[in-house]
Amino acid sequence: MATEPTSTESKKDPKSNGNGDDQSLGRKIKEGIDLAKNDPREGQIWTSVIRHKLDDSPRNRSLAVLSNVFLHLHPAKINRDAVRYGFTWGMGGISFYLFIVLTLTGVFLMFYYHPTKGQAFRDILYLRHDVPYGNLLRNMHRWAAHAMIITVWLHMLRVFLTGSYKPPREFNWGVGVLLLVFTMLLSFTGYLLPDDQLGFWAVTVGTNMARATPFLGHEGPFGPQMGMTAFNDVRFALLGGSIVDSNALLRAYIWHCIGLPIVLSVFLIVHFWRIRKDGSISGPAPIKLEHDFKDWAPAKA
């Protein structure tokens, strides 16, 4: 490919009429053919989208990451050991990827779903049997949700066992714990949506615990003394009623599709931001010795 454009006079100044003031259509066509021969990567469209050169240089490798909004959370360079799979297990990244998968499949499912009693269950049957790839879509949403819970647990296990919550990453561990809670709540709110026996009784068992909340539940310690009844306690707020019914279905739906994803996304942004601000990925760090910390471990006499 021609990297050095040769006959670019006309391209540089298309309005020029220096060449004998030839304004004929034939000349325009000839100029157009010349333009088409140029490397598209030199053209205005390409350079407006990808703002760096493509030849393999350290500068361009960095710019490939830094000038891309989706990749710019990465630093340009990282510790060479940090790419070892054995250290991080990739669980945080896989959790985020599963969150994206869940968002996409969830949006598609929403096109076919009405959060109303009676209709909800029929919509699931419709998805299973009539919507093209509807069953695959629903299965992927379900299994990605379960997989995400597993990967989030494993991510926490890895961060603990590598001591990666230690300074300066204390705060980000706390954010991560909240993300774990939101992940499970997202899955839990989704459980009710098919409006089948499984979801109904799981949510009944789950929300029955809420009425035992101390002070705020009508069967919890000191709840009655606080004036709690089945119609004003924390369980009532969760279900929008005193039983798992149409209001509960609507509330679960709103929390599942809008409320919790927004909250989780906010914490996710903070989580990723703090990973960078706290010194990027945590290691594997060079190991420390007791010898390095005389205050911590006084030499055994």
Partner: peptide, 15 residues
């Protein structure tokens, strides 16, 4: 946990 674990060792590697 991060605020009560004062151990300076084991920060960023398996041990």
């Amino acid at each position: 946990i991060p605020y009560v674990d004062v151990n300076p060792l084991g920060n960023g590697y398996y041990t």
